[in-house]
Write a protein that binds this DNA or RNA. Structure first.
Ligand SMILES: [Mn+2]
Ligand SMILES: [Mn+2]
Ligand SMILES: [Mn+2]
Ligand SMILES: [Mn+2]
Lengths: 245, 245
DNA sequence: TTAATAATTTAGGATAGACGAAAATTCAAT
DNA sequence: ATTGAATTTTCGTCTATCCTAAATTATTAA
């Protein structure tokens, strides 16, 4: 599909408000917003985002990513060092955070106001994030009490674009006996999310590591007096905050 | 802007459900959905929709409309007789009605659930209608009690695509002494809508024509004991249902 | 009937975004 | 230093959508 919200012929039609609130932030296309968001997430690991990683993340051919990256660099949204990867500029980061806020507020709203399951909201938010105005997103946030995290525990950037990305540890890394609060999990795998919900292993709950089988064996955890066996691949994906240290 | 949700390389990935519910209805782009919607509205006047009228409605150059119309005809969404205009096929009409349902449910939801004014919702709905799934729209409709009309009095098509388009009369055509219920008004002019709201002339209210100045002069109406003078251009746009006949 | 006018289509371009094949670059292991 | 694999970019194409200018067709007026 290729139709979108092409900038119409009629002039931009600037109103008073446009000049006020911080920087104008020109309208970006849905693909551009998704690129910036993906780059932001990849960059969180510290390194510049690599072409191939972006291609995998966005499910595009590497050649397509190179082409888009060139355009985004021209627009001053990111810096590209050939063969080295890309880093967002301040402008690009602002856009990424705005999209991230939209995405996460929408996910939270769908769950809290419209009864969606936490495993169903991601694809919906992936499209709505490009169509919803900031005003709508703010109204949604207000309607559900200004949440600070989305249904998967990801922090929701403020209107101004501030986030505190807490660095959690993986449940897979905890030693036996450790007690921790479940904080966050990736939002993209519905099956995983449904399974976690079955286990009642959702953000906010407290778990204790009871036993760890060696050599990548299962981990036994206890939650609310219930013991559960989970595989290391799953534990890997679950982020927690250990009690004290 | 040109990026959208292009059909990805990966196969369509049909699931069981796909084959069930009536016809598959392939994904259409936002511009295509807007064309079909506009054609549907123009066709309601009885005649095939003319290229120029579509161009005006969609704010595009007539040549662009001709080009798109050719493509839509190839896809079996409409019939085009060169120099004569276009008519939707059954398939095209189904798509138009689905978009119309989305648009109107979204408008109603924004007003009733998120506190939007009836003059603010149209542009928002114009974009969200292409991003929201049928499921989301159904949930919205349910959340606000399955409304049958949008905030401007336009009927909301059913999930199955049924609408009863009542034929109302214009307030400008009523004789002195006539009493009528305000039923509907076009949703696109925010200024007009704000003015009508100021007058308390909104769908559901009852008005009586008290006096009509000749030669396109103002019309005096009475609502809830209040008399108001309104111009003929405005009266023209207000659709009403006269009491008895 | 014809000539002028209005509506519509055709022709030729542009832009955004995506793809595959082939070439170029980097990097790690000899 | 070479080399081969992995990564990344370049190049040539494609589709969808829109635009302007020119040509064509239909309609209306004389
Ligand atoms: Mn998500
Ligand atoms: Mn997205
Ligand atoms: Mn509307
Ligand atoms: Mn629309």
């Amino acid at each position: 599909m290729a139709a979108r919200t092409r900038r119409r012929s009629g002039e931009p039609e600037r109103t008073r408000r446009d000049r006020d609130a911080s920087p104008p932030l020109p309208e970006l296309t849905a693909p551009v917003e998704d690129y910036l968001k993906a780059i932001y997430e990849l960059e969180r690991a510290g390194e510049p985002a690599a072409t191939t990683d972006l291609a995998v993340e966005l499910r595009l051919a590497p050649a397509s990513v190179t082409g888009m990256v060139r355009r985004l660099a021209e627009q001053g949204l990111l810096m590209h060092e050939r063969y080295r990867g890309v880093r967002l500029t301040a402008k690009g980061r602002r856009s990424a955070l705005r999209t991230l806020r939209r995405h996460r507020v929408i996910e939270a709203y769908l769950v809290q106001a419209l009864g969606y399951g936490w495993d169903e909201v991601h694809p919906e938010a992936e499209r709505l994030e490009h169509a919803a105005t900031d005003d709508l997103v703010d109204r949604m946030a207000m309607a559900i009490g200004e949440p600070t995290v989305d249904p998967h525990g990801a922090p929701i950037p403020s209107r101004a674009g501030a986030v505190e990305e807490a660095r959690y540890r993986s449940l897979a890394d905890l030693p036996v006996g450790a007690i921790a609060d479940m904080m966050r999990v990736a939002d993209e795998d519905p099956m995983l999310l449904r399974y976690l919900a079955d286990l009642s292993l959702t953000p906010g709950c407290t778990v204790r590591v009871v036993e760890r089988a060696p050599y990548g064996g299962p981990i036994t955890i206890e939650m609310k007096r219930q013991r559960r066996l989970i595989g290391p691949a799953l534990a890997e994906r679950v982020l927690v905050r250990p009690h004290r240290e």
